[in-house]
Simulated assay, not measured.
Amino acid sequence: MTDEATAIAPSPLATIRARMAQAAALAGRNVDDIALVAVSKTRNAEEIQPLIDQGQRIFGENRVQEAQGKWPALVAAQPEIRLHLVGQLQSNKAEDAVRLFDAIHSLDRQSLLTALARAMDRTGRRVPLFVQVNIGEEAQKGGCAIADVPALLAGARDHDLPIAGLMCVPPAAIEPAPFFALLRKIATDHGLPGLSMGMSDDFETAVMLGATHVRIGSALFGARA
């Protein structure tokens, strides 16, 4: 590849945004209604900064402690950044998460709901929450059972917690479309607008099936070491 070709090649971020726009157009949707969450877990500030420089403003992290170590300085330099917690959350980290993140995608049990309600009351912040659903009923994955979604949503209403929508991670190596469609149906049945679904390998399918947030890591940053 020539130096000239390298110079004009689109960045991974530009490529992902173009693919999102194409998928949205095929589905008759406006790509501006779909948030790209750049999942920066395990990535350091030097790896993240180029995306910020290209205009990316929403980032996802899996662990509270890791995010606490690298994001305050980045956010101070670019206050428009919004942080989303996309990994599992321990109840004892609820207040730290509420203080740092602008959305949490992993509400999956009543004990965490109670901890988040207390944390929001103490901090005065009302952070939008996505209920994580174990859409493939996989024992090794987080997320509440499909049958438990109504009770969890009722508990959130009782605590006046802001529910943005539902989140899922479909089973690996299986066509994801039926799982995305099922999550959309559950959300529609409960009047929820948000759908956090789709990652590097399947985000176009998710966009065509109604995703409002796609969580993309390796396609933006490359494979982790």
Rank of each mutant, 00 (worst) to 15 (best):
G124C: 09
Q54I: 02
R63H: 10
T15Y: 03
G69E: 15
R184L: 12
N62Q: 06
Q54G: 01
L166E: 00
V133A: 05
H105Y: 15
V64S: 01
R224L: 02
A172M: 12
A181G: 12
S218R: 15
H84M: 08
A23W: 00
A119I: 03
E80G: 12
N30T: 02
D189Q: 14
G87R: 08
A223D: 07
H105I: 15
T188F: 09
P171I: 10
A21T: 04
I163S: 11
P10D: 00
A23D: 00
E4D: 14
V127H: 04
A172D: 09
R126E: 00
F203E: 00
N30S: 11
L116N: 13
Q110T: 02
L112K: 00
L26N: 02
Q88E: 10
S11F: 01
M199N: 10
Q54D: 05
A18T: 09
P193R: 05
E4H: 06
N62M: 04
L113M: 10
Q49N: 12
D3P: 00
R99Q: 15
R118Q: 14
E4A: 13
D160E: 15
I174Q: 14
K93G: 10
E138S: 00
G124D: 04
A67P: 08
A177C: 08
F221T: 07
V64M: 04
G191H: 13
D148E: 15
V39Q: 06
H213G: 01
A145H: 14
A223M: 10
V86E: 08
R184F: 13
T188L: 13
M208Q: 14
L112E: 14
F101H: 08
R109I: 01
Q90G: 05
D160K: 01
Q110K: 13
V149M: 07
G165E: 03
A77C: 14
L195M: 08
S40G: 04
R43Q: 14
T188M: 13
L220W: 10
I16D: 02
A223H: 11
R43N: 08
P72M: 14
A103N: 10
A76M: 10
S196W: 07
D53Y: 05
M208L: 08
I16L: 12
S106C: 10
A94L: 11
I8Q: 07
L209R: 09
G198H: 03
D121A: 11
S40Y: 00
D189W: 08
P50G: 07
L182F: 08
R122Y: 01
T2E: 14
V133L: 11
A177I: 12
H84Y: 07
L89T: 05
M167W: 09
